[in-house]
Amino acid sequence: MAVTSTTIPTMDAIVGPSPGQRLRKRVFGHRGVMIGGIILLVMVLMALFAPLIAPHDPYTQSLANRLVPPVWHETGSWTHPLGTDQLGRDYLSRVIYGVRISLFIGISVAFVSAIIGSAMGLAAGYFGGRVDLVVTFLITCRLSMPVILVALAVVALIGSSLTVVVSVLGLLLWDRFAVVMRSATMQVRALDYVASARAAGCSNARIVFSEILPNVMNPLIVVATLEIANAVLLEAALSFLGLGVQPPLPSWGLMISEGKDYLLFDPWLITIPGLMLFVLLLAINLMGDGMRDVTAPENRN
């Protein structure tokens, strides 16, 4: 090749880094994903190793040690770094155990609603026609019903427990999965390789599971992430209203509700669990938004 600067570009310049390399570069180069990922990792570790990290039992009450302020107060001490609540329970331990509840509910709800919503979305997008019409109608109906109101009413009727909260929210939050999966499936369905799979006589089930599903995984994961955040938020709201997780479980929403009466003189009772909620939700959202950027860079603005 002639040595000039107007030479034909080399192979590297044309082909560039492999898709895997580029994805990795984007993931690690993306600040949102990195920050969110690190916070989330810490939260997950906290949930997994709560019994090892927590200095006290989160349920042991001590009426002599009620409302001890956190360590940065003049009267605080390192025995209870975040103080104690109105029943003398160690607040740090409760906060640490609280992440378990949030994450458990978030992930289980997202799982349940992902199955319902994806099935509906896939069916609507793949079969189109009447199936699509019915699914779209169901989505519209579901969207019309206020989640909090319905969830509150049902939980109040059946009686609140972790399982009830998970099932009710799972049955209510499938709409976004259905919407996104429907449009993603429609896009993929129109592509040539699906057409060729049909021409080759593959069964519907085979096409859906081996041709379509792998290609709509990216939006599915993004929605799942954002839906986890949504579920965490709703659980906290339900518990705050007294119709979610029941005492003495250390749900952050419930802790805020219990600390509400001490708002003026012991504000840390609501500040700390609220901040934890905020940080957790922020981390999940950063991950979700970031993954959307990373997996579909052409859609980013």
């Binding site: 002639a2 040595v3 000039t4 600067s5 107007t6 570009p9």
Partner: peptide, 29 residues
């Protein structure tokens, strides 16, 4: 035949040299 050179960076010589049937050594410099 051939393709248009990249226009990024400093360019020297005739831009068409790599596709030109009549190119000789001076064309590149």
């Amino acid at each position: 035949p051939g393709m248009v050179p990249s226009l990024i960076g400093d360019l020297k010589g005739c831009a068409f040299a790599n596709r030109c049937p009549h190119a000789f050594s001076d064309c590149n410099t």
